[in-house]
Design a protein around this nucleic acid. Structure first.
Lengths: 162, 162
DNA sequence: TCAGGATTGATGCAGATGCATTCAGTGCGA
DNA sequence: TCGCACTGAATGCATCTGCATCAATCCTGA
């Protein structure tokens, strides 16, 4: 009789969990050692910087980053506290607001990309041929109902800014 | 000129992060909806239950689970609070202790496996052929300096208890 | 035009986490 | 056998997270 999750599926599951957490830890550690804030800040700054006017509604940011609403709200608090972004009122919808990246924010995003891209290369790029990386993408996409394209591009586009 | 992290590597990185978090969230949610504690509790109970005497030194547990020391200490606190494990003194090394799983702990571990295995099947098994799952394993292993075998077996062995 | 429901964003609270430190106990070398 | 470095485990503190809830505004349909 076949096992419910096959041996292979179970092994894939556990590796997905373990490997991701190892690799993520490694990358976060490198950022931290370089004196940078957590990855989430980078992601947020990146999303803001690549948006047309350098500003986004919190709701948008939330969607891009797949973060819960309250987490987004607090992340913005921190960015604002550090002068990396500012809140602007939204005339069209008075419930809402815009979050705009500041020059300091753009600057930090670029600096972080140096360290971030190096970490990706070290922990992923250098361990997989491009062809294998592409295969891995394909397999992962089958699990994730596909990351939306915007997100898939988040890192790649960043590359052009270095 | 080639980009430092190739497009493929960057895409693999971002998918690894996003897909893992989606899948993990989904699985954790199902456990929670079924009224169970978090996955970490299962892992700990599983490690304890499969150890020869049903007990482990916190240090061992820590290694199996790749958790920081203080996290292990607190996880054990919670297990003990809920009567799922007990702390026993370690005569051989008075600094240390043993953590022993209780009947209630074994029971919960088995019950959780029902929900857990179903969730793995739903979110991983059903989306990948066994051959693809194996391929995914192979690629992930290249990134993770390989999960150690014990860990790789954590889920699979559990299957035999259902 | 107004009631009622949906959306946007913030926040109080409880629990979890990371970090550094502490304390007890061990074992080795002088 | 003493001193000292190391190991095993707990904990105080600040921060972060998850959850539920709130207030404000918006939208829709009668």
């Amino acid at each position: 009789m076949k096992r419910k999750p096959s041996t292979e599926a179970a092994a894939a599951w556990i590796r997905l969990m373990r490997v991701q957490s190892r690799v993520l830890d490694a990358v976060e550690q490198e950022l931290k050692k370089a004196g940078f804030p957590p990855l989430a800040w980078y992601e947020a700054l990146f999303e803001l910087s690549r948006s047309p006017a350098g500003e986004l509604r919190p709701v948008e940011l939330e969607k891009q980053m797949t973060l819960p609403q309250y987490a987004t709200s607090r992340l913005i608090d921190r960015l604002v506290d550090e002068g990396l972004a500012v809140r602007r009122e939204c005339k069209a919808d008075k419930r809402g607001q815009f979050v705009e990246i500041t020059d300091a924010g753009r600057d930090l995003q670029k600096k972080m990309w140096q360290a971030y891209s190096a970490a990706i290369e070290k922990h992923v790029g250098s361990k997989l041929s491009d062809a294998d990386a592409a295969k891995l993408c394909g397999l992962l996409d089958r699990l994730g109902c596909s990351c939306n394209e915007a997100q898939a591009l988040a890192v790649r586009d960043g590359a052009s800014t270095r």
